[in-house]
Design a protein around this nucleic acid. Sequence first.
DNA 1: TACGCCATCCTATCACTGATAGGTTACTAG
DNA 2: CTAGTAACCTATCAGTGATAGGATGGCGTA
Lengths: 223, 223
Amino acid sequence: MTIYRKKSAQQSTSPSADAPRAAIVHRLKGADRREDILNHASRLFLTYGIAGTSTRMIANAVGISQPSLYAHFATKEALANALSARAFSSLESLIGRIRTADIPAPARLEAMIRGYIGFALDQGAAYRIAFMLEGPMHEVEAFNPDILPGMQAFASFRDEVALLQQEGHLREGSTDHLAQSLWASMHGLCALLLARPDFPWGDVEAMIDFHVEIILAAYQNKA
Amino acid sequence: MTIYRKKSAQQSTSPSADAPRAAIVHRLKGADRREDILNHASRLFLTYGIAGTSTRMIANAVGISQPSLYAHFATKEALANALSARAFSSLESLIGRIRTADIPAPARLEAMIRGYIGFALDQGAAYRIAFMLEGPMHEVEAFNPDILPGMQAFASFRDEVALLQQEGHLREGSTDHLAQSLWASMHGLCALLLARPDFPWGDVEAMIDFHVEIILAAYQNKA
DNA sequence: TACGCCATCCTATCACTGATAGGTTACTAG
DNA sequence: CTAGTAACCTATCAGTGATAGGATGGCGTA
């Protein structure tokens, strides 16, 4: 029995050769260097995926040695989590902006849903890290501060759901169930589009519009 | 600046020591050995995750050398894809069984939805491989036969949606949009539950019931 | 029964990965 | 001017997926 190997892409232009180390290295203060690393890592993760981006690629792009990364992040996973945290802080602020914007209630829900979907598709790498990554299956993770921004973003979303419900724009029932179910419906589309971009989706824009319309009708008050 | 490393779990009982090689090795025919490998890999993937399972762990569990795996699968990814394919064949047959079962139309839709969710949560590892894994972001994958069972399962699902729509049990509109949106709604819940089992979901059973009810109401014909 | 093929399986080794150990350098407070 | 320390380095580790090439045993055929 013989299996033919698919020839590996990226042969001539190896990712590991991405941006040779800068000739002159400037020392940076911890916080600045940390931001520097996150910026380059974000770009690389988006291009090559997380598993496809090595710590050496990141270090080369930044212009420091690979072990120097570990002065700022305990592990590669911690770096990814920090990126996710950064992205979710911006999601939370996005939700906050929509909540405080002067938008009448029904349109506010739609704005929230479309904002969420747009965020997920834009920040694909960070969104994957937060919601689609394979974590330890049986091991209960000790408190991880990098998950917090995601939780806060959800909490903010849940608060808005509670408000809309109180105002009578959303169906009755458990607010937690409502928020989680609504979140799941939004997430489902984002996750599938991100995980299977090669699927014959047809017109993606139209598909999103269709799904949003269904969601709005499903969760709004029938009264 | 000093970062404290989280101490690595699995220290004393390293996963790599999982099941020492069997003393007496029996030669198996290609197809049998292949099934053997898939069975052990499935168990290990579920326990340690895909990235957390090395090819050496799989080989040790099976009782063969690590390079011997490559006589049956070109890459570790190919092995994972084969597992996914096997699982999705069973999903397709599940859908087929529900379709041909003697269930009146509205209950048939609910049976389909609950069957799908149950499958996803049971076959977590395979489901992840098929729908939640990080793939190449910019590279268009050449035809991959292991994706076929997943596509066929979706096609079967879409056919049933078309039928229910023709019978007047589902709302009007593009059948493709309807099937994709419905799939996304189901997937969203499964994906979140699998990716974030540590989230404070509350009563998961009740949450699933709530979501299914919403989906049924959302996609059924309002007439 | 004897032969030879070839699928099965092995050991040895590769390049690369994430991570660690321990020394060097440059900025800065006193 | 002189510590002290944060920033950074080189060298190296064990483990990973994958490859090269040789050993072996069962089976069809002469």
